[in-house]
């Protein structure tokens, strides 16, 4: 294991910048997101707890051109963009967001091979950074991970005060670190320090949910209109919780045509919007309670049935960013016990 002084982080980044587009947490645009490093310093370390826009945006862009088309004579000529070959390095990704990408992989990599997503995924390196100050909205420890989880990154950093302990997790990470200068070998004391930091961070995550109970109660509550109407009453049906969710991957497909030149794009879509399920004759989720039910069930019931994993990593963005403080953990904890409710006519 290696370590590096905090003031030397910029030196690491500038080495990596030669081979990668380096993304770091940034507020430059006006909101916290992963943005291309400006090459100056690592000032983000002072404020960074997590970004508002999750790093899923680096893989599943909020708007992505699938192909272009041009009218030529009587027909259209298609232009497929070449696969993404630029290498990106995402520095400082939090364990919850890294796990979220592993969860999205199941849809875009395992269930179906999406070349747009995969070309980005294959050309990416994730440098994880354990949390030392989880938010009061975080609940990752209830979902099989924690603020120091390193399973989904290539290299993991742990903040030990003035230094970061560096762990190589994957072969890719090992390879990168071998080429990188500036990191020293860590001592046993450093490693012990990191263990203590990780434990302390784990204990700071106080928001809890009971996934066993949820697994039991959620399917039973499916037809419980009264329950879902109650919990959804204050939802305003905006797209914040889904767009900013690191595991939400729903998209829409749209064509755009200007002056004979056109393109097909895919862009983020949200099951919170009534139009999401609108079809010519009917809309199965016109009512708000059905949309809220869908969102919760997709994460905590449907996804586990398909892929054996809950599609939520407890990052807490949906709680923090919600304009009305709709809290998924309260909904889940409030699931009624007892016999399944069947639909009342």
């Amino acid at each position: 294991m290696k370590k590096i002084k905090k003031q030397d982080i910029a030196k690491l980044l500038s080495q990596w910048q030669k081979d990668f587009t380096v993304f770091v947490p940034s507020k430059e645009s006006g909101t916290a997101e992963m943005a291309v490093w400006d090459g100056k310093d690592a000032g983000f370390l002072d404020w960074y707890r997590n970004t508002v826009v999750p790093p899923k945006a680096n893989f599943l862009q909020n708007m992505e051109k699938l192909f272009g088309f041009r009218k030529e004579g009587g027909s259209f000529k298609l232009e497929t963009p070449p696969p993404e070959t630029r290498k990106q390095l995402i520095f400082g990704i939090r364990p919850c967001d890294a796990r979220a990408i592993a969860i999205i992989d199941m849809v875009f990599k395992d269930a179906y091979e999406d070349k747009y997503y995969l070309s980005r995924r294959q050309n990416s390196l994730l440098i994880g950074m354990g949390c030392v100050k989880p938010y009061d909205s975080c609940f990752c420890t209830s979902l099989g991970l924690g603020p120091a989880e390193a399973a989904d990154v290539d290299i993991m950093l742990t903040d030990t005060g003035d230094e970061y302990l560096i762990e190589e997790i994957t072969a890719k990470g090992k390879e990168l670190l071998a080429k990188t200068s500036g990191a020293e070998t860590a001592s046993q004391t450093d490693e012990n320090k990191a263990v203590a930091v990780k434990q302390a961070a784990y204990n700071k995550v106080t928001r809890k949910i009971d996934t066993k109970q949820i697994k039991q109660r959620l399917p039973d509550a499916f037809e419980n209109k009264e329950f879902w109407e109650g919990v959804s009453a204050k939802c305003v049906s905006c797209g914040i919780c889904t767009f900013l969710c690191p595991t939400c991957y729903c998209f829409d497909i749209n064509d755009e045509m200007l002056k004979g030149d056109g393109a097909r794009y895919r862009n983020w879509d949200s099951c919170s919007f009534p139009v999401y399920t609108k079809m010519p004759a009917e809309n199965p989720r016109e009512e708000k309670w059905k949309r809220v039910r869908q969102k919760v069930n997709h994460k905590y019931d449907f996804y586990p049935r398909l892929f054996n994993v809950i599609a939520c990593t407890g990052c807490g963005r949906c709680i923090r960013q919600c304009p009305v403080n709709w809290d998924i953990t309260q909904t889940l904890s409030g699931l009624p016990a007892g016999a399944p409710v069947t639909e009342k006519k």
Binding site: S29, G30, T31, E33, V53, N62, V236, S237, C238, G239, I240, F243, L244, N267, W268, S270, F273, P323, V324
Partner: peptide, 16 residues
């Protein structure tokens, strides 16, 4: 223009 570059079209402004 620079402000609207980061809009994600979540429509929260409209919904509230």
């Amino acid at each position: 223009k620079s402000q609207f570059e980061r809009c994600i079209r979540c429509y929260a402004c409209r919904q509230v």
